[in-house]
Simulated scan of single mutants.
Amino acid sequence: MPSLRSRALSVALIAAGRRRRFVSAEAVRTRVAESARRPASHLPPRSLGRIAEVSRTFVGAWPVYDVSPRGAEPAARVLFVHGGGYVGELVRQHWSLIRTLVTRAGARVVVPAYVLAPRGTADRTVPVAADLLSGLIAGGGAGGAVLIGDSAGAGLALAAAQRLRDRTGAQPSRIVLISPWLDVSMSHPDQAAIEADDPMLARPGLREAGRLYAGNLSADDPRVSPLRGSFAGLAPLTVFTGTRDLLTTDSRELLRRARADGVEVEFHEEQGLPHGYPLLPVPEGRAARDRIVELIRRAAAEA
Rank of each mutant, 00 (worst) to 15 (best):
M1F: 04
S6I: 00
R7P: 01
V11P: 04
A12Y: 04
A15V: 15
A15D: 05
G17W: 11
V23Y: 05
E26S: 05
R29L: 12
T30R: 15
E34F: 02
E34W: 00
A36F: 14
R37F: 10
S41D: 15
L43A: 15
L43E: 15
R46L: 13
S47V: 02
T57W: 09
F58Q: 08
P63W: 04
V64F: 05
P69D: 08
R70E: 10
A72C: 07
E73K: 07
A76F: 10
R77M: 04
V78R: 01
V78Y: 04
V78E: 03
L79F: 09
L79C: 13
F80K: 03
F80R: 03
H82F: 12
G85R: 13
V87F: 14
V87Q: 05
Q93I: 09
S96T: 02
L97E: 01
L97G: 01
L97M: 12
R104G: 06
G106N: 07
A107W: 14
A107F: 13
A107P: 09
V111M: 10
A113Q: 02
R119Q: 14
R119C: 06
A122I: 07
P127E: 08
P127H: 08
V128M: 05
A129V: 12
A130P: 00
D131C: 03
G135L: 01
L136A: 03
G139M: 11
G141N: 12
G143H: 10
G144N: 10
G144Q: 12
G144M: 09
A145M: 11
V146L: 02
L147G: 01
I148T: 08
G149V: 07
A152Q: 06
G155A: 07
A157N: 08
A159L: 02
R163V: 09
T168V: 04
T168S: 03
G169F: 10
Q171I: 07
V176W: 03
I178F: 00
P180N: 01
D183M: 07
V184F: 05
V184I: 10
A192L: 14
A193R: 15
E195V: 09
A202M: 14
L206K: 04
L206F: 03
E208Y: 09
Y213F: 15
A214E: 14
A214R: 11
S218P: 07
D220E: 14
D220Q: 09
R228V: 06
G229K: 10
S230E: 11
A232W: 03
A235D: 08
L237R: 00
G242L: 05
T243K: 07
D245T: 06
L246W: 14
T249A: 15
R252G: 08
L254I: 07
L254S: 02
R257E: 11
A258Y: 03
R259L: 07
A260V: 03
V263G: 03
E264G: 06
V265H: 08
E270C: 01
G276Q: 08
L279K: 02
R286N: 06
R289T: 11
D290A: 00
D290W: 00
R291L: 15
I292P: 03
V293L: 02
L295H: 02
R298V: 09
A300R: 02
A300D: 05
A303V: 11
